[in-house]
Amino acid sequence: MSLVTHWLKPTTTVYAHCDVPCGIYDPHQAELAARTVARMVELLGQLPKENPTEADRQKFVRCVAVKEQHAEIVKHEIQVIWSDYFKPEHLERYPDIHDRTWKILKLASKNKQNIDAQAAAELEAAVKEFADIFWSTKK
């Protein structure tokens, strides 16, 4: 390297940090969260319906809390990919992205409101399809 470029080259890197490591998107987090929602619904279904013990009640509350948190994570992660990653050219290939996103958000809310195995399974499937679309745009 010439002396001139050696002198010009910065000595230090400074970071203009973003919360999404820029340009790096991954639907995995959303899939994991949707899976968690489904698992919580499953665990809730296993709790005794009558005469719950103290431990059962505690587990019930915890599972509901985790279910709602993870449904919220699904909403957040899907929204970030939808608003920040998808570009008009992706929309040309997949014109239903908006509709799919909207439905996932609705489904996630439904999963927050209810303990519903059917809704949880639908959410998981919808997020999986969303992720498949995401990865197909990377090819």
């Binding site: 010009l8 080259k9 910065p10 000595t11 400074v14 970071y15 203009a16 940090h17 820029c22």
Partner: peptide, 22 residues
Amino acid sequence: GPWRVAVAEESMTPALEPGDWL
């Protein structure tokens, strides 16, 4: 302190782009 720095990442765009030398 450092007086020549390189910018990484994008939170300062469009004022500063990643790769700018300041």
